[in-house]
Each structure stands twice: as structure tokens, then as C-alpha cells.
Amino acid sequence: MDLRLDDLSVDLGGRRILRALTLDVPAGQVVGLVGPNGSGKSTALRCVYRALTPATGRVLVGEHDLTAMGLRDAARHVAALTQDSGSDLDFTVAELVALGRAPHLRGNQPLGARERELCRRAMERMEVSHLAERGVLELSGGERQRVLVARALVQEPRVLVLDEPTNHLDVRHQLDLLALLREVGVTVLVVLHDLNLAAAACDVVGVLGEGSLVAAGPPEKVLTEHTLREVFGVEATVVAHPLTGDTQLLYRLPSTKGPR
């Protein structure tokens, strides 16, 4: 299902944090938001999962205005993994993953066979099945992150939004998670700091600078040396990965005067 951020502006603390952001996330594609700290990436995501109400604009899922939906209906459409998704309550892993079914159940309705199978498959996919009876507060940051992704998958969303999902993950699990995003078949909007991961994992990259969309398009068209210099303030050489052809960035330290 298509996701559209339509002319979104957000004001916080008397300042305009996001300025007239319009971005299309086509059905089934992975679209990444990148930009310097404070550029408005997480703010845009908060509008999608309804933690913030925009000053102007709409978030459309298909033809429906997300802000006009009831919370339960919206949660059937959009699942979110946020930077503060941790649980302060010591659920077991199995209990926390099962909470992903809450938008689809009524009251204290118990999980049926289908729900239990969804949970089992999601935990297996994220390699956390062996943690099922462990308390969430006992887990490492990386283990907890994978559990939260499993919960989002169990929600069976049409749109998945993730804010820095590779935080706390080791390199293998970072790559596994980003590969998974391309396989799950839902519409994905993800914020990433690592531009090389964004280039490898995303169909489209949107670059934000000072709350505005600077550029959007395929990684090879957007992550240019000029954009990196103007938006991020870094010098880099853009190359193609020797095996995949994906855009990759080779950074130069500010103190480097030239080739060694």
C-alpha cells in the first residue's frame, strides 16, 4: 500500500522543525530518510505513527488520511519501531512479541492458532526463539531490538516505519535486518544514519537538511559528492560496489590533505 507524506510541517518549541515535506513511498518499496542530526528525519516518522500531529499536511495510507482513522485501525495499517521502543515492564520475549497482535484482537481475547504461529515464525525469523521465556529487561540492546522487530512483523502492517533500526545490532544482524526489509513485501519507511547501508538497502533515498527535503530518488542519483558536501559537510568519493554495483561512499577525514 502506498504511503504519502503530503506537505508535512511540524512546529516544536516555537520552531518549525519540518518544512512542507512531500515524499511518496510506493507500495512494497523501501524508502530511506537520511540527513544530519536535527534535520527532521525522526520528526517525519513520528507523524506517520501518530506521535506528533503536523501543523500542516497529511499522512496518506493508500487514499486514507491516517490521522482521521481510529487508533486501532491505524495500528492495523502502520507498525513502528522507534528509538524509544523499549519496554519498562519485564514481559517475556514471547509476551512482548504477542503484543503485536493487539490491534487485531478485542479485549482479553486469547491468541488463536494463527496468532501463535505468526509469533513463532517472527521470532524464528529474527533469531530470538531461544529467548522466548527470557525477560525483556535481561536482554542486550541488540537482542531487544530484534525482539521489537519481531513484534512489528507480527502486527502484519501494510506500512512499516523504523527509526534507526540497526542501532545496537552487530554487523551481521544489521545486514540481515536490512535484507529482511526488502523481503517482507510491505511498504517501508526507514531512517538510517549509515549512508552505505541506506544505499544498499533502499530503493529510494530522501535527503533532509534543516527540515526540508533536499533530494529524493535512487541512491546513485541522490548520494552524490556534491550532496554529501553541501548537506553533510563531508568529503567523500562515490564508487560502485565491485560485486553488487550498489553505490558506496569512501569518506575522507577532515585532517587529510591528500593521498598518502
Results as ranks from 00 to 15, higher is better:
residue 80 A to L: 08
residue 228 L to D: 11
residue 178 L to W: 15
residue 132 A to M: 10
residue 230 E to M: 08
residue 249 L to D: 00
residue 104 H to V: 06
residue 207 V to T: 08
residue 174 Q to T: 08
residue 121 R to E: 03
residue 260 R to Q: 06
residue 239 V to E: 12
residue 1 M to W: 07
residue 14 G to T: 12
residue 25 V to F: 02
residue 252 R to D: 13
residue 185 G to E: 10
residue 193 H to Q: 05
residue 152 A to Q: 09
residue 81 L to Y: 11
residue 18 L to Q: 03
residue 160 L to T: 05
residue 92 T to K: 15
residue 259 P to Q: 02
residue 41 K to P: 12
residue 210 E to A: 09
residue 219 P to D: 02
residue 208 L to E: 03
residue 8 L to P: 10
residue 64 H to C: 08
residue 225 E to G: 11
residue 99 L to C: 08
residue 55 A to V: 07
residue 68 A to C: 03
residue 61 V to P: 00
residue 109 Q to D: 13
residue 48 V to S: 04
residue 87 S to V: 12
residue 130 H to I: 04
residue 54 P to Y: 00
residue 28 G to V: 01
residue 192 L to A: 15
residue 1 M to T: 10
residue 21 L to V: 15
residue 260 R to E: 06
residue 168 H to K: 00
residue 102 A to N: 14
residue 220 E to S: 08
residue 211 G to K: 07
residue 220 E to Y: 10
residue 43 T to I: 08
residue 130 H to C: 07
residue 58 R to S: 14
residue 85 S to E: 00
residue 125 R to V: 13
residue 15 R to S: 12
residue 249 L to T: 02
residue 192 L to G: 07
residue 59 V to A: 02
residue 175 L to M: 14
residue 22 T to L: 07
residue 122 A to M: 05
residue 72 R to M: 12
residue 83 Q to N: 08
residue 77 H to Q: 15
